[in-house]
Amino acid sequence: MKPVAAIVFKDIVIEMRSKESLSSTTMFGVLVLVIFNFAFEPSSLERALIAPGTLWVAISFAAILGLNRSLAMETDNDCLQGLLLAPLSRGDIYLGKVASNFTFMIIAELVILPVFVIFNNLKFNVQFLEIAAIAALATLAIASVGTILSTISANTRMKEVMLPVLQIPLTVPVVIAAVDATGRVLTGETAEISSWLYLLAGFSIVYLTVSYLVFEFAVEE
């Protein structure tokens, strides 16, 4: 477990130094929310229908940006090889990067979510906490599959451009679950949320396990 923590800590130190990843992903997420307000101009009635969608488009696009940055850091100067030379399994490297990607995405969401609440004139009450809980689970799901996909895309000639092509189709179930669960929180029909949460948790567990096992094929020459 210690090397996993070391990877997260290292990424945090690098981010504090360079301030590249968080500022750009957060700004991007907020901008997507702003753009959607121009694009739809929802009245207060339609807001509950459209708002969850805008939130999750913002978060999943911002995530793609952050995932690319996170991996670019490792491929710059071939640092990934340094990790591969260390006495930890390929799977642990994967878990370390998932943990660090998850942490950064959550930090970005700490800004994006309140902005979302303000833009949509929602309240900072128990609803907000429920949305935050959904966001945490969905973020884990996105980080689990996004970390290995960003490693794959970094190997292609298109590099960063390839990641959305691979990631968007695979995260369709996550986005559907997150959008519908968020919508239900906003409309107060919270009865069926638990099955969405199970789906998100199941998705994370399955992808964490499969990726842990096959990560070596994604990083080795």
């Binding site: 599959v145 290995i148 996909l149 794959i152 190997n155 292609t156 691979l166 189709p169 695979l170 369709v172 179930p173 559907i176 679950a177 789906l199 199941g202 998705f203 399955v206 992808y207 499969v210 990726s211 096959v214 094929f217 994604a218 080795e220």
Partner: peptide, 21 residues
């Protein structure tokens, strides 16, 4: 190697898609 990893991840996704949709 990489497309096999993606193929595996992609096909694991199919049941989740099914449930979600």
């Amino acid at each position: 190697k990489l497309s096999s990893v993606f193929g595996l991840l992609g096909m694991v996704d199919v049941p989740f898609n099914y449930f979600a949709i």
